[in-house]
Design a protein around this nucleic acid. Structure first.
Lengths: 237, 237
DNA sequence: CTTTTAGTGAGACGATCGTCTCATGTCAAG
DNA sequence: CTTGACATGAGACGATCGTCTCACTAAAAG
């Protein structure tokens, strides 16, 4: 008598009746500019609550986040289509390095030194917030794997402006294409993803990771500078 | 009248009564060497089914995987503590580049050329299996974020041997420390994580990604070679 | 062939997810 | 102050997750 199935499996034929469409989440009846303050505050409270709960590395349930924000579950879903979307925005707003402050009283214009300094800041941020960043990364990965239309910004890019700021004083010394290439390559090394590689794949500790990255970013800057100086963009002929 | 709560929230005081301990999952009554064949086959079937279902980018439910493997849900949980653990093992076994074949009839010993070739192989693998890799990465990230004891190998390292093989003919030209540093830095660029950065952060397409990585790996190899030649390990001295 | 026992199937269970509806509260314009 | 539009709260609902128990099957041992 396999007549009694577990409830999840009933109506097996039309199998996926609800067929999640991840991106057609209507932000309820939120129109652009009505009661903006009220909405700003609940949104801020939700993110703050999520950020708080993420610190211990456990993925908080939306129920917990909503409770911590003194907001109902339904309201939380009116602001974010799912838990992950909340986790994506949460963990970094307080930890992001301040670009102005970083280079404020630093008169050095040596691009290698400045890039290294910028990398050090990102490095600290990533390793100090490892738990939260892991959750955030996981959230963006699965979000992106499913619905791909992505009118929403999947991911905020913090490293780009930081890299630009670090290289700004020397910008004129790079050829255009070389700069674009360097910028992208540095982004590979700067990001929090590199922390994942060091931890999970290479099994190196924070200090070794920092040394490797410090060497790599400087080597790349040097290489790009040299190629630009020689006046050829790609060196394989 | 907040007497009627949603069922999930009842018994609020002891809140987390079950308190997931991710790693004390007992593999049921599976002792090392009894009915090994039977167990090997069900495990293999589960992984194969997961691999199959992952190809479209949707995270398959364990119910679906078990059904595809012609196995009951309970049995699947006897082999893997959760869906993620299955997804981690699934997506890459068939796609990993074969190191021997890659360098078989390639007499070149130029480390830059060989590294570039290896990177190209990893690049293809990563971009061809984007959906599966995203799921796998997300799974390892959250696994690592929670229970951290990790007697299990969180992640298999495919890039390490590949990098070693590519650099093997030129190995003698590197100083030891420089080689270790180069190896780690290349691992940052080789991995599937870099695909994520290109896609989600930099928004570059596959071709541009390949160009950036090709330039970066060659530049790093060159830099490490040069430093080794000059006989100094770190150049900021 | 029988007995033992390890692997399995079926499904109940509580928890969380994301959706939806209805009622209530609250801001802001008249 | 009233009123209408909008934000919120409360909770039902079906789906999936991971755990657990019980019964059944089939491999291995005698």
């Amino acid at each position: 008598m396999s007549d009694r199935k577990r409830p999840a499996a009933k109506a097996k034929a039309p199998r996926k009746p609800l067929e999640r469409k991840p991106s057609d989440h209507k932000p309820a009846e939120h129109k652009p500019a009505e009661r903006a303050n009220q909405r700003y505050r609940t949104r801020k409270d939700l993110i703050a609550a999520a950020e708080q709960l993420m610190k211990n590395g456990h993925k908080p349930s939306l129920e917990d986040i909503a409770a911590a924000a003194r907001v109902s579950r339904a309201t939380a879903y009116r602001y974010f289509p799912n838990v992950e979307a909340l986790l994506i925005e949460a963990p970094l707003d307080s930890a992001a390095p301040d670009i102005e402050a970083l280079f404020a009283k630093d008169a050095s214009i040596d691009p290698e030194a400045r890039i290294d300094k910028a990398e050090a800041a990102m490095h600290r941020m990533a390793f100090d917030n490892e738990a939260g960043i892991r959750l955030m990364l996981a959230a963006t990965l699965t979000r992106a794997a499913e619905g791909r239309d992505a009118t929403v910004p999947l991911r905020q890019n913090r490293r780009g402006p930081l890299i630009d700021a670090a290289l700004a004083p020397a910008r004129a010394r790079f050829r255009k294409a070389a700069y674009a290439r360097l910028r992208a390559a540095l982004a590979l090394i700067f990001g929090s993803e590199s922390m994942i590689v060091f931890r999970d794949v290479l099994r190196l500790d924070e200090k070794e990771a920092r040394q490797v990255k410090s060497w790599a970013v400087k080597a790349l800057v040097r290489a790009a500078l040299e190629e630009s100086r020689k006046g050829e963009d790609s060196r394989h002929g």
